[in-house]
Design a protein around this nucleic acid. Structure first.
Lengths: 170, 170
DNA sequence: TATAATATAGTCTAATCTGAATATTCCATA
DNA sequence: TATGGAATATTCAGATTAGACTATATTATA
């Protein structure tokens, strides 16, 4: 559902073929990491079956054929429906790293400390990455800020655990 | 992978049958919403095939048969491996709601405002829910704090957008 | 200029996941 | 005491996903 919204949303900007769509998501909407190539192609198929998009086949030089997807009127309406649903609801997020935290007591404090320092570094790298890309066009800036805010919350969280582990082990 | 860690982790506390495992995750580890009943059964099958768990079939009264799963030594080692991996790495999170935000300009500001107010309320409800459950045993408290921190970041984020939309539309 | 690496464009299979279905028992309530 | 709903316990078919694979073109490198 969210992935359909994503693909329809990109197609709202104009026609695009599958490969380009994937590149676009990968580079411009890089904050969303849950869409793989093949899933995108699969979803485009679904969207086409439901009449939300149509495609024309074309070929450039001797490269493989490609399908230029275009959103239909029905698709535009559907996009707006999905958008309303997305904006008016809250999608609860599961954090995989919570599972590790829940079982943290199963490893010696010393080892946990080292592991968490690594985690912290990787979170910091992500933050630098987002800061590095500079300003995005309008709405995307919201998304970047959102992700940075969450990453900072993660840093604080790791620090809280590190602090607690430190105290327990004196 | 994360789901295997979760199930093995619960089984580290002792034997349990599938149904009970699901109940446990649903109630005690309710911060993790990405494990459905049937997925859990599927993963238990996998774990059994890989020798990480064994099971004994039993029946209580005339209820359906059930499988009591028990973690093996191999399983315990695997659990620790997965735990190290989880604690020492950072799993990037994708926020579905970001997709909506990215296309926010496709709806009139007035409508967006109303929708976001709804979203905000739902986030607030989640926060109350977490605060309502009270103190958890040791490590789970970390996880609850983590989730509350993220929810608060979401509230601030929504407020930021609301503020911006307000200004644009004067 | 041969060779390697990357970009283009998408397909395919096997693994995984979801939601509905099954079948019994327990409990409340009318 | 009949009846409807929740709890127990899992299975199954069909939807979805991930990751490897195909095949050519272009660019970089030695």
């Amino acid at each position: 559902m969210i992935k359909k919204l994503l693909l329809l949303g990109v197609l709202m900007n104009g026609k695009m073929h599958g490969y380009r769509l994937n590149e676009y998501v990968k580079h411009t909407m890089n904050f969303y990491k849950d869409l793989t190539k093949s899933a995108a192609y699969y979803i485009l198929d679904q969207l086409e079956k439901d009449g939300y998009v149509t495609y024309a086949t074309e070929r450039e030089g001797k490269r493989p054929e490609r399908r230029i997807y275009e959103i239909t009127t029905k698709g535009k309406n559907h996009f707006l429906e999905l958008l309303r649903e997305c904006l008016g609801n809250y999608t609860p997020t599961s954090f995989g790293d919570d599972i590790g935290a829940a079982f943290i007591g199963r490893l010696p404090a010393e080892e946990v400390r080292n592991l968490l320092v690594n985690k912290r570094r990787k979170i910091q790298d992500q933050i630098e990455m987002y800061k590095g890309v500079g300003d995005h066009e309008g709405n995307l800036q919201y998304v970047i800020n959102h992700n940075i805010a969450h990453l900072k919350a993660d840093i604080s969280w790791v620090d809280e655990i590190l602090k607690n582990i430190g105290e327990e082990n004196q």
